[in-house]
């Protein structure tokens, strides 16, 4: 293994920028974030990168490594031996500086989701099987890599018509909570725009938490919307059942 690797890191801000190359000595088991820290300490103290836990729990260090959206703290440098590692900020959000992007839009939308409305007071009696589904979704670390890769947001910039996979998962965890009484289907069909998703599954591919966003989250939401808007028969059966 060579003892040095070349990182080509995007340096720039709102007004533009370009990649700058840095050489970093390789350490065993080094992750890309380690390499960026080396650059900060030795070459470019003002290199901007978000990070917190460095253990893939917080979802701060999202970026694009050789074109693939990834967490910097979880991507090993030795996967790229013999190549230059190109590191760029997330494409779907405006750059603040270097690898740091403005992800505030996601928080705005998260605020707009009607909160959990429990039917009863805690303590709840719930079986593990009742919560398995939503625990998968609540494992989300809000890294927004899914929002970044989603072509509706990435290529079509349709943030006014679709809230993206992260928000779908947030809505799914509420809709599937056994004790939630809220109804978010109008929102889903309307402003949140679940219909904009064409289930091409890139969000699922990039999720560092391995959440099956499309199959377990978005498709069941689409079916819930279909229950109400595309299935008068089913709707009638459900009404009688209640």
């Amino acid at each position: 293994m060579p003892d040095e690797i070349t990182l080509s890191v995007y340096r720039g801000d709102k007004s533009g920028g370009q990649e700058v190359e840095y050489k970093v000595p390789i350490q065993t088991g080094m992750v890309v974030l380690d390499a960026l820290h080396f650059i900060q300490a030795h070459d470019a103290p003002d290199l901007a990168v978000r990070w917190n836990c460095k253990a893939a729990h917080c979802g701060s260090c999202s970026a694009e490594i050789n074109g693939s959206p990834k967490l910097l703290c979880k991507t090993r440098v030795d996967d790229y031996v013999g190549e230059v590692i190109h590191i760029r900020p997330m494409h779907s959000f405006p750059v603040i500086k270097d690898l740091v992007t403005d992800v505030s839009w996601n928080y705005e939308k998260l605020r707009q989701v009607p909160a959990f409305q429990p039917a009863i007071k805690a303590p709840f009696t719930l079986q593990q099987r009742d919560v398995d589904r939503i625990q998968e979704f609540r494992n989300c670390i809000e890294c927004f890599l899914c929002q970044n890769i989603c072509h509706v947001l990435r290529d079509h910039d349709a943030k006014d018509r679709y809230w993206g996979p992260r928000l779908m998962i947030r809505i799914a965890e509420l809709e599937m909570h056994p004790l939630d009484t809220g109804d978010r289907l109008d929102l889903l069909k309307g402003a949140a725009g679940v219909g904009m998703c064409n289930i091409t599954k890139c969000c699922t591919v990039v999720c560092p938490q391995g959440i099956d966003i499309t199959d377990n989250g978005i498709i069941p939401l689409k079916e819930r919307v279909a229950d109400v808007y595309w299935d008068p028969l089913g709707g009638l059966v459900r009404k009688l059942h209640k």
């Binding site: 909160a115 959990f116 429990p118 007071k121 805690a122 303590p123 709840f124 009696t125 719930l126 079986q127 593990q128 009742d130 919560v131 939503i134 625990q135 609540r138 965890e173 509420l174 909570h177």
Partner: peptide, 20 residues
């Protein structure tokens, strides 16, 4: 802890359906 459950936290469960 129970207050968190009421706010939407989803803890692991015991066979009786309580918080594990």
């Amino acid at each position: 802890v129970l207050e968190l459950e009421y706010w939407g936290a989803v803890f692991d469960r015991t066979p009786e359906g309580k918080i594990m």
